[in-house]
Design a protein around this nucleic acid. Structure first.
Lengths: 129, 129
DNA sequence: CTAACTGTATTAGTAATTATAGTACACATC
DNA sequence: GATGTGTACTATAATTACTAATACAGTTAG
């Protein structure tokens, strides 16, 4: 299910967080969909359940999933309150990257078109219901 | 010259890299301008010279400065060859962030305006010659 | 050449992180 | 009650990251 690089300097749990976030953002995993259990996923990728749980804990902390003891972990719907904080962070980081890109000589138009691409990627997923 | 947070979980050298990159990107430091020496800067911020050098090494690796043993370290001019690789990386990262932003509910128009803001920040610096 | 400055390399020690293992607890479902 | 779920806790080994101290080599000015 996931391709993990054990010998990467990037921790396994971080790789998991990134890949799962993408699946959620692009709505491959829909809101309220149940994720594999920590033990089941640990078996599949043959790593320790604690590592999975660390990834889930991080995803829950970032607001991308929610967990119910005894039941399982599920994709979180978008809650505007949490999103606003994150949105501010995202905008700050994006602005920084955009400045760097412009400095490196990327055309303004190219950066504008990135927004269009992103929109299609995200919206495209949503229309595939 | 720099405000560093010693007790931050973000390493000192990373803080240095970020702040210096911003100075270069916004052209507070111009191409071929000499940077403070590792020892001099180490004295100013009262940290180990090696930490400064690690930051400089990273900046050089990223193509933002160049160093000449015995002479000093200087702001690198933009070399299209190196920039192209970095541009690709920047675009990938930006696209990722944009998708995340859209998913969180940030309006497309708001993201587009970020590009304008970035342009003014970078161009604004350049016109201040 | 000497002295004082530059960047650089090596080594070492400490601290932080990471992944694993084992155990235990509480809740849900059948 | 048995099983599967998330969660918590401790412990430990291994690795990595970070900083520091020292030494080396090139440049420049006197």
């Amino acid at each position: 299910m996931f391709e993990l690089d054990i010998r990467s300097r990037q921790p396994i749990y971080e790789q998991l967080v990134e890949k799962m976030k993408e699946l959620i953002i692009h709505e491959v995993w829909k809101p309220h969909e149940q994720l594999p259990s920590v033990r089941q996923l640990a078996k599949e990728v043959t790593i320790n359940p604690n590592t999975i749980q660390k990834a889930y804990r991080e995803l829950e902390h970032q607001g991308y999933i929610y967990s119910i003891p005894g039941k399982g972990s599920f994709v979180a719907p978008q809650s505007p309150s949490v999103s606003q904080e994150k949105a501010t962070m995202i905008k700050q980081q994006t602005l920084k990257l955009l400045c760097e890109g412009l400095y490196l000589g990327i055309a303004k138009e190219e950066l504008l078109s990135l927004v269009e691409t992103a929109e299609q990627l995200v919206k495209g997923a949503k229309t595939n219901d």
